[in-house]
Simulated assay, not measured.
Amino acid sequence: MLHYTIKQYAKNIKAPGKLANIELHADPVKLENDDLLLSQAGLHVRFKFAGKGVIGMSDGEASGGQQVMKSLVLLIGLLKSEDGSGGFVFIDEPFAHLDIRNIQLVGEFLKNTDAQYLMTTPLTHNTDVYDPSELALITSKKKDTQWAQLIFVLQRRKPEQAAA
């Protein structure tokens, strides 16, 4: 069963990787009835971004955008089921420390996956960062209060609604 799970996960990360124009290679994991091999077993994935060299899972040379994309691809691959759905993902500030271009790239990627998202983002962001979502729940806590205020809702109008 573990062999199947690892093989399925390696397959699951390829689809979101392809959506993000990232070549992925997951090294086979050696699982044998050997305590030493099992203690050293681990998943090793290499990422190749367009026009750049291969980056490992914990490579410190990846840019902020590349690190976000690596994490999202691995997370979505973990949540994908056999029927191909992308699951439900909670992402804490995926756009933090990214420039506008990388925000757009990450947002475009999120829109193209089959997953559903709940994202947190600072209120100081331009509402363009909400582009991947049709609905955003916004709340904040002020310094001198114990609890955050009630949740505010930002809902995108569909193009046909905006024209009306």
Score class of each variant (00 low, 15 high):
S63A: 02
G53N: 12
N33C: 08
G42A: 14
V153L: 14
V153S: 12
A26V: 05
D92M: 12
S63Q: 05
I100R: 12
K7F: 00
G51L: 10
A50F: 08
M57F: 06
R156N: 11
P16K: 10
S63N: 02
L2I: 09
D128V: 11
L38E: 13
N21R: 10
V73I: 15
V54M: 13
A50N: 12
A15T: 14
L37C: 08
Q161D: 12
T127N: 14
A96S: 13
Q40K: 15
R46C: 02
I55Y: 03
L2Y: 08
D99V: 05
L78E: 08
K143A: 13
A26T: 06
E23Y: 03
E61V: 02
L2W: 07
K18V: 03
A136I: 12
E82N: 05
Y9K: 08
D114G: 04
K11H: 07
A96M: 03
E61H: 07
L135T: 14
A148V: 05
G42L: 10
K143H: 11
V89S: 03
K14R: 09
Q116R: 05
G86E: 02
K142N: 12
S140R: 07
K52G: 00
I103A: 01
G87W: 00
K142C: 06
S133Q: 11
D128W: 06
S81A: 08
L24C: 10
Y9I: 05
F109K: 02
F47Q: 08
Q66L: 07
I138N: 06
K48E: 08
A50D: 14
L72M: 13
I6F: 05
F49D: 08
R156Q: 15
H44Q: 14
I6C: 01
Y9M: 04
L150S: 10
L123P: 00
M1N: 07
L79S: 04
S140C: 02
V29W: 14
I138T: 03
K52R: 15
I100V: 15
Q104L: 14
V54N: 13
H125A: 08
K7Y: 01
P28M: 04
Y4H: 09
D114H: 04
D99A: 03
G86L: 01
I76Q: 09
K142L: 13
K111Y: 00
V29L: 14
L150M: 07
L2S: 07
I103G: 00
N21I: 03
L123T: 06
Y117M: 01
V89K: 05
K142F: 11
E23M: 03
A162L: 15
Q66Y: 09
E134W: 15
V129T: 11
V129Y: 11
E108G: 10
E32F: 04
K7S: 04
K14L: 07
